[in-house]
Structure formats: C-alpha cells, structure tokens
C-alpha cells in the first residue's frame, strides 16, 4: 500500500467536493440547480458502473434499464406496503443484483456481440412483463402497470439530493478501489484478452459475474433514487432505451475505460438533457449525432483526448 502524495491530493479533492456538494442545499441553492445536480448524481453513478462493465470488464451490457427499472419498481411497490422509501432504495439495489445473478446464467454464455444483443432483449422482456402486470386486491389494487410512489409527498428534494450525492460518491470510490485491487487487475487482463487471462489462472466467469452484480446493485440504487424523486413509475419509461442512451453517451463522451471519463461525460449529458429538453424530439436526434461524431472524431473521449494531448506535450494546463 504505497500512499503517494498524488493519491492524497486526489482523495482530498474528492472529499472536499463531496463536502461542498453536501453543504450546498443548506446554503440555499436554487431549486433548479438542485434538480440538475440530482440528475447529475444519478447519471454519474450509472455511467460509472457502465464504465466498469464496458470499459474495464469488456462486457458491453445493453441492459442498464433493466436494473434501474426493476429497482425503481421495487422501491415504489414497497412504499405501498408502508416500507420507507430509503429502505426501498436499498432493497431495490438488492433486487437488481439478484436479477443480474438470475440472467447471468443465460447472458454469460454469449460472448462479445451476442452478449450485447442478448442483454438488449432483457429490458424489453421486462417492459412487456410489467405492462401485463395487473395486481388485484390488497394494498396494491387500483394501479395499472404504473404506480405513484406512496407517502413521499412530504419528502423534500434535499433528501433525494443527499442520497444521490451519496451514491455518486460511493460509485467513484468503488471504482477507485476496484481498479487498484487484484480484482481490477484481473478485469483488465480479461478485457485485453480473456483467453490468456484464463490461462494465467484468472477465473474469468467469476470476475465478470462480480462486476456485473456490483454494477447492477449500484445502478439499481441510483435508479431507485431517481424514481423516488420522480414519484411515478411506469413500464415504458422505466425500461426505456433512454437509460442506455444516457450511460452510453456519458461514458463515450467522457472516455470509455478511463476512470474520470464518466464524470466529465455526465456533466455534458446533464447539460444536453436540460438544454435540449425544450426541443422535444430534436433532443435525442442531436444526442445521436453527437454520439456518432464523438465516436468517429474522438473515440477516446474528452478525458482521453486531454490525456493524449498532455502526453504529446502540446497541452499544459495551468
């Protein structure tokens, strides 16, 4: 454990950032800013986890909507059973993680592109299942497939904000720990060449499964926090391809496979999200064009570009 000065600087920066962010609502931050930041935290946590999957584990999983939607639904349903929403958020994460274990049996048999499309089918199946779902009787009656989150009307925005901040910071720390551990080393070996990783004694299946479960859990928690803010959930938006779009865009713009990538990417995605919201359909059209252009022009993402420029010596910050 060599603690370098660089690491101390990074850690104290992160700590300072978290403290400042946590204090902002108390110091009377405008509501709209708080809204932006809640989105930012949720997107950041989800994108960090997608980066863990696609960038560090070589798992191009196209099913974040499955984890986010399932956790959101779990949290919502639990509020109807009079379980507080913050408990529901954690249970939602657990359900998402359990679900990832459940589907890992089928999807992990596929490799590369097969895996990508196999996982793309999953949210679609869930959407159809939840659209069919018509609970009868008991506490849950009256709802169709869509539900209000019950009993959070008195929950102030600040609580969601702090929860979001917590999961975002946790996701950053988690990625940091994973990348500096033996686990992260194994993942990097798998990403670069899984056959040679396996022949050097790495249990490929298990490591991939672990990162899949971790990602499902954190994405689930982030998604449940998002829906506790939204206060309403229904299948078409919960299992929407937009979730995939958000994490993909944030990771690719920021830099896939780079630790700081999603942070930069999530900032840009949130700005795009709110700036383009008023244009309706053009919003996604523009985001699609940005995705294509970035991928072709700067495939390493913004942080990757900065790193490359630094290395070649033509860019010196400060």
């Amino acid at each position: 454990m060599g603690i370098t000065t660089r690491r101390i600087v990074v850690l104290s920066l992160l700590g300072g950032f978290a403290v400042v962010m946590a204090l902002l609502p108390i110091m009377g931050m405008p509501q709209t800013w708080m809204l932006y930041l809640i989105y930012f935290f949720v997107f950041l946590a989800a994108a960090n986890m997608w980066n863990l999957l696609a960038g560090f584990s070589g798992l191009l999983a196209l099913c974040p909507a499955a984890f986010i939607g399932l956790a959101g639904y779990t949290m919502t349903i639990l509020t109807w059973l009079n379980i507080p929403f913050y408990v529901g958020i954690l249970v939602g994460g657990v359900v998402a993680a359990l679900f990832s274990i459940l589907i890992s049996g089928s999807v992990f048999r596929m490799k590369g592109v097969y895996f990508a499309i196999g996982t793309l089918v999953v949210p679609e199946i869930l959407r159809l299942v939840f659209l069919r779902w018509r609970p009868v009787g008991g506490e849950l009656s009256g709802g169709g497939a869509g539900y209000m989150v019950k009993g959070v009307s008195e929950v102030i925005m600040q609580e969601t904000y702090w929860l979001g901040l917590a999961v975002a910071v946790a996701s950053i720390i988690l990625i940091g720990i994973i990348l500096r551990s033996k686990f992260g080393l194994g993942l990097a070996a798998i990403r670069d060449n899984d056959t040679s990783a396996a022949s050097s004694g790495i249990d490929v299946f298990r490591l991939k499964l672990y990162s899949f479960i971790i990602a499902a859990f954190v994405m689930g928690v982030a998604g449940a926090i998002f829906y506790s803010y939204q206060r309403y959930i229904e299948p078409n938006s919960a299992f929407n391809i937009r979730w995939l779009m958000i994490v993909l865009l944030a990771t690719v713009i920021g830099g896939k496979g780079i630790e700081e990538g999603p942070f930069v990417g999530a900032i840009i995605v949130v700005i795009l999200h709110f700036q383009l919201a008023r244009y309706g359909e053009i919003s996604l059209l523009i985001q699609g064009i940005i995705l294509v252009v970035i991928m072709l022009a700067v495939p390493q993402g913004i942080t990757g570009l900065i790193r490359d420029l630094r290395r070649s010596g033509s860019f010196r910050p400060g």
Binding site: A116, E281, L285, G288, I289, L291, L296, P299
Partner: peptide, 28 residues
C-alpha cells in the same frame, strides 16, 4: 467502416447512434 477499423464496440455504438438519428428524424 471507420468505426469498425477502431473496434467492434465502436461500430456497435455508431450503429446505435444511427438508430437514434433515424428514429427521431422520422418522428420529426
């Protein structure tokens, strides 16, 4: 093809971008 030369993942992401563009352009 440009993305394909980089990696298969890149090609997949480009195709995803094209898909979004077509969907939303035809919605308009």
């Amino acid at each position: 093809y440009r993305a394909f030369k980089m990696s298969i993942d890149a090609a997949l992401i480009i195709a995803f971008g094209i898909s979004l563009i077509i969907q939303n352009a035809s919605q308009l």
